[in-house]
């Protein structure tokens, strides 16, 4: 099974139906497959922060969600994490396609990538970097369950080691 099949199947198994996203090249197949599956309500949001607001509202209304984004999108989220997801104890589940490392060709992406883990650590947020297919389902499934039971957000960072990443000639 590919990494994106694992994401889709694990979301489904955990009854996560609402998946707003701001796209990334690496997420293309996952996004296409989510759209093709009537189990999911999936759509683009204009900003990552907006998508976080949407899944937060849905959680409070009894519907589970997750947000898909890339590294530079995560960099826009410090305020909403610190003022909504964490203090209101919302199990925000984020999948972040990692740009900026292991072959990055855009200097700005490589710089913004360096802000991601310090922001997560400064807020003491749970986060994992997925690099291996054989561990991936375990990480995703357990992280979703932990987020929901502990009412705390989690960031699952999808390393180029897992996804292949984006390379210059793509």
């Amino acid at each position: 099974m590919s990494w994106h099949d694992i994401v889709l199947q694990t979301l489904k198994r955990n009854d996560i139906r609402l998946v707003p996203y701001v796209p990334d090249r690496v997420l293309t197949t996952l996004i296409k497959n989510l759209h093709a599956d009537p189990f999911f309500t999936t759509f683009p949001a204009a900003r990552e922060e907006e998508a976080v607001g949407i899944v937060s509202g849905a959680w409070m209304g009894g519907m589970r969600g997750a947000v898909l984004m890339q590294t530079s999108g995560f960099a826009t989220l410090a305020n909403v994490l610190a003022s909504l997801a964490i203090p209101y104890q919302i199990p925000l589940i984020m999948f972040v396609s990692e740009r900026g490392t292991l072959g990055e060709f855009n200097y700005g992406q490589s710089l913004v990538c360096r802000t991601m883990r310090p922001v997560l650590d400064s807020l003491a947020m749970e986060h994992h970097t997925a690099t291996r297919l054989d561990e991936f389902e375990f990480i995703v499934d357990r992280s979703i369950k932990q987020a929901i039971t502990t009412q705390a957000p989690v960031a699952l960072i999808l390393s180029p080691l897992l996804t292949g990443g984006k390379v210059f000639d793509k």
Partner: peptide, 25 residues
């Protein structure tokens, strides 16, 4: 009633999420 204490600008997105979760409300 839900009261926001930060995250300026997210009232409509939060409301959209509630509306999607509970289409009969």
């Amino acid at each position: 009633n839900f009261y926001m204490l930060g995250s300026m600008g997210l009232a409509f997105p939060i409301a959209l999420g509630v509306a999607l979760a509970q289409p009969d409300r």
